[in-house]
């Protein structure tokens, strides 16, 4: 299977301190991968690196092309201004950006597509509600509808089910599995190991450096999880330059 995302000795971080350290490997096209690890392990940082909002301190990330239009990204805490007077329908319709662009109109057919996406996440009836009146779970449903419309081959989700109830989580996992059936590449940062074991065939266990990567059952062994917990330490303010060479 070809690689959708290839990491070539990637180091990502802030102020020269690495948050993801010397990661090499690839995520196969059409795979469904969970990224697991303690807080501060570099999971969100890795997603930012893939989207391109953070440039690597070293190495390179290869998506086989530009991230724009090919990667749909749901950040951990989307910096959405909930006080802005905007309806659910309008929020979801932004997902059509790659097709409509800056100036393109939204026609009758597009409106049907948007209505379908809203129905797929169970928000039918909420179209005209201002986004400021949505609950956390309803907002997450709306953002998933927007991801649906983006129609991207690569989908990145950063802790999509945190602070979301069981019913909503189950509905949204259905959406994730639908993407997987459509042969899209899905990468999700998750904390609930039960969810990972049940729904995600592949896992990357990250603790700044990769601890394990592969089939979920093996990657998330008790031993690996223990190792990952031990590897996370605070940033060392007196750290010296990393001299490690590529193997």
């Amino acid at each position: 299977m070809s690689a959708a995302i290839r990491f070539d000795d990637v180091t990502l971080g802030y102020d020269r301190h690495p948050a993801v350290h010397h990661l090499s490997g690839e995520i196969a096209a059409g795979s469904l991968t969970a990224i697991v690890g303690p807080n501060g392990a570099g999971k969100s940082t890795l997603l930012k690196g893939i989207v391109g909002t953070l440039s690597p301190l070293g190495g390179r990330i290869d998506l086989g092309g530009s991230a724009k239009g090919r990667v749909a990204y749901l950040p951990q805490a989307a910096d959405i201004d909930r006080t802005f007077p905007l309806s659910v329908f309008d929020l979801v319709s932004m997902g059509l950006w790659t097709r409509s662009g800056l100036f393109g109109g939204i026609g009758r057919k597009d409106k049907e597509t948007i209505a379908e996406a809203i129905a797929a996440v169970g928000l039918t009836g909420f179209e005209t509600r201002p986004i400021g009146t949505l609950s956390g779970g309803q907002m997450q449903r709306a953002l998933f509808a927007r991801l649906l419309l983006q129609d991207a081959p690569i989908i990145l989700l950063d802790e999509p089910f945190t602070a979301i109830d069981a019913r909503t989580t189950a509905d949204l996992i259905d959406v994730v599995e639908r993407w997987h059936k459509e042969k899209r590449t899905v990468v999700a940062v998750l904390h609930d190991l039960e969810t990972v074991r049940r729904h995600f065939p592949q896992s990357l266990l990250l603790a700044r450096s990769p601890v394990a990567w592969g089939d979920t059952a093996e990657a998330l062994s008790a031993e690996n999880l223990f190792t990952a917990r031990r590897m996370i330490e605070a940033f060392d303010p007196h750290a010296t330059s990393c001299e490690r060479k590529v193997a």
Binding site: T53, A67, K68, P75, L91, W97
Partner: peptide
């Protein structure tokens, strides 16, 4: 205004 992060992810 609404979602600058999203705009950055789809467009320059």
């Amino acid at each position: 205004c609404v979602d600058p992060g999203f705009l950055r992810s789809v467009s320059n």
